[in-house]
Design a binder for these strands. Structure first.
Length: 698
DNA sequence: TATCCTCGAGTTCA
DNA sequence: CTCGAGGATA
């Protein structure tokens, strides 16, 4: 074929497109500064594809269109690493790091490699929670990619790795003859969430965490599937490296460019910088630090930012920065002596699911709870975790006997993330929702369209009676100090307390008969009950434990009706006139007071001397927050959350639990979490405690 | 009817 | 804190 003008321009256009696309990938994944929209990027790809279709002879293996070229395979070949992929020793405690630093410092001093100040210089970086891989570039082209495997031999995953847009198919600039890049493949948490949503919609496998999702995606036999997975790659090291005779090196050695042979071989950090110049995405958030204090400072720093990073890390890694020093330090067994991984306390651990028991809540809700083999995760030992409901167990497919992943994420509450299917024993047993209440043996029923199964025993069920009393005594209800869980259990079990009203007839002498009750505690409790006999009306209504009537609705009812009797006398129609009360809530209230024994309890409370305080219908004071909704988050320096809530309500404002565009202000204290992020996104005004005080006219 | 906003309920460990 | 679900609103 002769090279006519037309052919030339097509070839040139194809070349130009490839270089543009590769530039955009580089800007997006390496520089983190995309300059074009996804749509524009797609347009370039489409144009390149159509040109290549029309001119198949112009297709080269490193064309971005060829990222997904390979057919599904039946298995992976093994690959022997030219240079072994090492593992790192681990440090869990500060002492481990100090010992590491001392060993390094002593060895280097012996070799006469000490710095002026005697401190060892380290390159500190993040330890990704992903999968280690090795990429082999020959003459600047990606020729092979392999998993770590046992460190000597891994699996050939070249066609899967080629689909990762963050992995350049050709190196940029002055590339070496041979370069084995070592790094980690991982998935960002947000991408992982999105992937799982898609998987769920399609009825495909749900992944338990980003790491498993990344692993599963890399081990796909069909690269077309891998191509759809949002995987990323970050380089942190290298294996075999042959610099000589690099053809690119002679071409463009610009005057201002540092001599690669110089910078290149001095330090680990310079090596990583150099890898970045070759177009490889290099581990972000690196730092060069000195001495053990520098290491620990880095650890603290990154540990604090852990939640804010887009991906999971399980620690940080320290490497002696000088490559010469690294050579002097050498290796022990399969780990280098010049590097160590400093692990964070695990946020995720695996343990055995010993059993699934059910709990009965105040409303009869049957909640399955996982009994776990105790496991230390996120700084505490976890033995129980809620499984929420039957559907949740099915969705996660956890079975009794499974090895499960347990997480203690941003908040405090442990969560069973999911089972490790590969470790499922033969005799693993699925959870079966019991037909009868374990406490009172009443039937358990689950209404259609509802996620929760409930015990139908009502107050016949001792568990529900206990929970009802506990609820009434809680801080947001009657706030009865000294009436703890154990005592409530005893009072209910002995039948001394059958309803809320019975509490108020308790006497010091009889309380002494219960376990762990001294005279002092008994007197304190009776005094607390005395104080509780003059509750705000809203608190009393809340304490009754009417279904669908929480703190807010109870307060609304109190304001609307002014007395318990008025609420009790109201029919559904009257109840519907209360704000935020619809048919379900109105029906629930009417049904509650329709029950003779509930009316009896109200009367018995009256006889026992419980008199709600008169409701003050707004004190006429300043109402600076009239009609405004505020959200509280984090810990404030002086006020508790309850305190702040009280003052906001007094100023005519409302306090809500979640941020939306209707939120007027977010009051953020120390350690504010996701609400702050959301408020920032929505452009909600953010205040601190002082700002709130100002707003209240304090 | 669909969507957004709130509220209610349940939960763990030290 | 999160989920489910009730209520209001467009």
């Amino acid at each position: 074929m002769t090279a006519t003008d037309g052919e030339m321009s097509v070839a040139q256009r194809v070349e130009a497109l490839r270089s543009q696309i590769s530039d955009h990938n580089h800007r997006y994944y390496v520089l983190d500064q995309p300059t074009v929209s996804d749509a524009e990027y797609d347009r370039l790809m489409v144009e390149l594809q159509s040109l290549e279709e029309a001119h198949p002879d112009l297709i080269t293996p490193d064309s971005p269109t060829q990222r997904v070229g390979a057919q599904p395979v039946s298995g992976f070949d093994s690959v022997r690493h030219a240079v072994a992929m090492l593992s790192l020793s681990n440090a869990f405690e500060t002492e481990d790091v100090e010992a590491f630093n001392k060993r390094v410092a002593d060895t280097l001093r012996g070799a006469g490699l000490t710095n002026n100040d005697g401190l060892v210089e380290y390159e500190a970086e993040l330890k990704f929670d992903g999968l280690a891989v090795s990429l082999r570039y020959e003459q600047g082209k990606l020729v092979q990619a392999a998993t770590r495997g046992d460190g000597q031999t891994g699996e050939d995953i070249t066609s899967n790795i080629r689909t990762l847009r963050s992995v350049p198919l050709s190196l940029r600039g002055e590339y070496p003859v041979v370069l084995e890049v070592r790094g980690e493949v991982l998935m960002n948490r947000a991408d992982f969430e999105r992937l799982n949503e898609t998987q769920q919609r399609r009825g495909d496998k749900i992944f338990v965490n980003p790491r498993n999702a990344a692993a599963g995606s890399l081990r796909q036999l069909d690269p077309r599937i891998t191509a759809q997975r949002p995987l990323r790659f970050y380089a942190y090291g290298w294996g075999e490296l042959v610099l000589d005779d690099a053809p690119g090196a002679q071409q463009t050695l610009a005057d201002e460019a540092p001599d690669p042979a110089q910078t290149l071989r001095n330090t680990h950090s310079a090596m990583l910088d150099w890898l970045a110049t070759l177009g490889l995405p290099v581990s972000p958030s690196r730092e060069v630090v000195r001495g053990v204090d520098g290491l620990l400072q880095f650890y603290e720093d990154r540990g604090g930012q852990r939640q804010k990073l887009p991906f999971d890390i399980d620690g940080v890694v320290y490497k002696v920065n000088s490559l010469e020093a690294q050579r002097v330090l050498g290796f022990v067994a399969r780990a280098p002596r010049f590097a160590i991984a400093h692990k964070f306390p695990a946020q995720e651990e695996t343990t055995t699911l010993l059993d699934i028991e059910v709990q009965v809540g105040r409303t009869g809700a049957i909640t399955p709870v996982a009994r776990l083999k105790p496991v230390f995760v996120g700084g505490v030992t976890v033995t129980n975790a809620t499984l929420h409901n039957e559907d949740e167990i099915l969705r996660k497919d956890v079975r009794i006997g499974d090895t499960v992943i347990v997480r203690r994420a941003g908040d405090v509450i442990p969560e069973v993330v999911g089972p490790v299917i590969e470790l499922r024993p033969e005799n693993a047993r699925p959870f079966v929702m019991p037909q009868h209440c374990p406490v009172c043996d009443s039937a358990i029923e689950r209404l259609e369209d509802e996620a929760i199964a409930r015990c139908t025993g009502g107050l016949f069920c001792a568990a529900q009676r206990k929970q009802t009393i506990r609820h009434a005594a809680s801080r947001k209800a009657l706030d009865i100090e000294g009436l703890g869980e154990k005592l409530v259990d005893q009072l209910v079990e002995s039948d001394r307390v059958k309803s809320l009203a019975d509490l108020f007839t308790l006497k010091v002498e009889e309380l002494l008969l219960y376990d762990r009750m001294g005279r002092k505690s008994a007197e304190n409790l009776v005094a607390a009950l005395e104080r509780a006999s003059e509750p705000e009306l809203g608190r009393l209504l809340y304490a009754l434990g009417i279904r669908h009537v929480g703190e807010t609705t109870a307060r609304d009812l109190a304001l609307h009706f002014g007395s318990v009797d008025a609420v009790m006398a109201a029919d559904e129609e009257a109840l519907l006139r209360v704000r935020d009360v619809g048919p379900v809530v109105a029906g629930s209230i009417a049904r509650f007071f329709g029950e003779p024994h509930n009316r009896e309890v109200v009367h018995a409370l009256e006889s026992a001397g419980v008199r709600p305080r008169a409701v003050e219908v707004s004190d006429g004071g300043a109402q600076p927050l009239e009609g405004k909704t505020l959200v509280l988050t984090g810990t404030m320096p002086n006020w508790t959350r309850d305190e702040a809530t009280r003052r906001i309500l007094a100023a005519g404002g409302k306090v809500s639990g979640s941020v939306s565009k209707k939120t007027a202000y977010l009051v953020a204290g120390e350690d504010a979490g996701s609400k702050l992020t959301k408020a920032t996104e929505l452009g909600v005004i953010i205040l601190d405690e002082d700002g709130l005080k100002e707003l209240l006219g304090d």
